[in-house]
Write a protein that binds this DNA or RNA. Structure first.
Lengths: 204, 204
DNA sequence: GCGAAACGATGAACATGTTCATGTTCGGGA
DNA sequence: TCCCGAACATGAACATGTTCATCGTTTCGC
């Protein structure tokens, strides 16, 4: 290892900040928790927070990014061969639902306040992870097209984006509930994806 | 008229605030425009702003609400009998695209920063208007179900919400372009709605 | 080991959103 | 006409996010 001591201390400091921010955001909400309180609980100076997150919003991403990255790896490996496209997609999303259900208060902050926020160093990482997810969806769609399960009238990227938006909408709807149940969330999403897969047109 | 002078002055003050806020948000962006600058340009005390909007974000809704309300009336009256559901929906949305294209900078603030913000007196009005739009969509869907154009596997409210989200996503994508062209926006939305209408499943 | 340069921590100072106690203006009843 | 209460306007005071000049620590070439 190159910079043992320095690097070590930096990681510990970042972790203390993450834990302090997570606790205070959860207890008091995003708006009511102040940077000074977070700095105090993390045993760092006020200015130090801004060495790790560009601004207050960026702190939320700092809390989530590490776990989100790991969870996304798990999620993208979840689909099994032989499943239909909808079931493969649900296998991916189910992992995220289960994870977010363990920390609904923080998840609400992430989904309701930050979906379209993009500046900040941590936010960049966040969007990178999200892109990996969307790329994964695109691969699933492309495979389904190749297998003849899905038509080819639209490019897989377009369809993947569309699916991602359906997922985002359902997720936001679900997380707003008082005590989000992942099973119910996945069930609702299944309805939405079926609707998307089957279309609106009346058959025969 | 009941309160001629008072009511009159109030309306004028609100209008000055609206214009000042719109100008400064457009010129400098939402973050860089300060409440003090807005108050100065509106020839009003700083505190007065907070008699008309609950907070800074609420100012954005104050700017939009009046026009948005009128535009939504026009939009909901746009569909013509005999059009397909997709064309009826596009007739509605086209009005909004055309309107927002005339003020892209402000529209970007509204769509990218404020879609999920909900507290504040102006925000309440905004969401009321949005609900009227979604109810209108629901009525179109219900009619299409009754006419046998759309299946009945899902309730019209669910389908309408789904359509609204597709619309929101497309709109946000479109408004991010440097100089949004309403025709292109509507064309892109048409692709998305067709995708929704036809479904993903490969036919026979 | 030693000096210096790079790196990170720090909190006082600043900028700006928000509150609120106070002053001002208007409408209507006596 | 003359008050009085309600509605409205106001800016000083406050709370809090953010910047930045400064300081201590770690690293690295010698």
């Amino acid at each position: 290892m190159k910079e043992s001591l320095r690097e070590q201390k930096k990681l510990e400091t970042r972790d203390r900040i993450r834990r302090a921010a997570a606790q205070l955001f959860t207890q008091r909400g995003y708006g009511a928790a102040t940077m000074r309180q977070i700095a105090a609980r993390a045993h760092v100076g006020l200015g130090t927070l801004f060495n790790y997150a560009e601004d207050k919003r960026d702190l939320v991403f700092l809390i989530f990014n590490e776990e989100l990255n790991a969870i996304t790896d798990v999620a993208l490996a979840a689909p099994r061969p032989g499943q239909s496209l909808v079931e493969k997609l649900l296998a991916v999303f189910r992992v995220h639902y289960g994870w977010l259900a363990t920390k609904p208060a923080l998840a609400r902050i992430l989904l309701q306040e930050l979906t379209f926020y993009s500046s900040g160093k941590q936010a960049a990482t966040f969007h990178g992870i999200r892109k990996r997810l969307i790329d994964g969806l695109e691969a699933l769609v492309a495979a389904a097209q190749k297998a003849g399960e899905v038509h080819r009238r639209e490019k897989p990227g377009v369809i993947a984006r569309h699916i991602f938006f359906v997922y985002s909408a359902s997720l936001r709807w679900w997380i707003a509930a008082p005590k989000p149940d992942p099973e119910k969330g996945v069930a609702e999403l299944r309805r939405m994806l079926r609707l998307q897969f089957d279309g609106l047109r009346k058959k025969g």
